[in-house]
């Protein structure tokens, strides 16, 4: 049978306590403890100490004691994060807008800035005056399409899509579009 001395006992004690020893080694530990008061006491001290610790553990609480403050905290964290993201997002958006404004502004100022340097190179054309003949008859009035100004809500003319239903628009005969002009 395997025999242990005290030093070997201390080295294997953790494995023994955690159930990591084979049967032969376990028997050897038991045999050693049976014959050695110091090692037996060591085992007793560890077991007693741990059992005192375990007895002291916090009792279980009712579910809501933990859940309610936890939920509040989770909400608060989410809100804080989203606000931080929002402010970061708005900062980026503001910066982007400012950048676009600068670019557009610089484009707008480009002709004036360039006027001093390239004015001589710009060719100038003289256009012949355009002479228009006077119309022979007055311009005919165009028919109104869709909404037209009305005085009361009874006179509202609905757009064709609503008057004739959606099938009108999605139907195969989209030529009808031209025919849905206000009959007036």
């Amino acid at each position: 049978m395997l025999e242990l001395n005290c030093r070997r006992f201390f080295e294997t004690y953790s494995d023994y306590r955690d159930g990591g020893l084979g049967i032969a080694a376990q028997t050897a530990v038991h045999a050693h403890m049976a014959s050695c008061e110091a090692c037996r006491r060591y085992d007793r001290v560890i077991r007693t100490g741990v059992s005192v610790l375990r007895a002291e553990e916090a009792p279980a609480r009712r579910r809501n004691v933990r859940l309610i403050p936890l939920r509040n905290r989770a909400w608060a964290t989410e809100r804080r994060e989203s606000m931080a993201l929002g402010s970061a997002g708005s900062g980026i958006a503001t910066l982007g807008m400012a950048l676009v404004a600068v670019v557009l502004g610089s484009f707008a100022w480009l002709p004036l800035v360039g006027a001093g340097t390239s004015a001589a190179a710009t060719p100038e054309f003289e256009m012949a005056p355009v002479v228009a003949a006077a119309p022979e008859s007055p311009v005919p009035a165009r028919p109104a399409v869709g909404l037209r100004p009305t005085r009361s809500t009874d006179d509202v003319i609905w757009p064709p899509l609503l008057v004739h239903g959606s099938s009108w628009f999605t139907g195969p005969n989209t030529q009808g579009l031209a025919a849905e002009v206000d009959p007036d």
Binding site: F10, E11, Y13, S14, R17, D18, R41, Y42, R44, V45, I46, T48, G49
Partner: peptide, 17 residues
């Protein structure tokens, strides 16, 4: 670490047990 922790723990509480 576990082995050392157990040894130290036992040494501290041994006088009380």
């Amino acid at each position: 670490r576990l082995n050392r922790a157990r040894n130290r723990f036992a040494r501290i509480i041994a006088p009380m047990i």
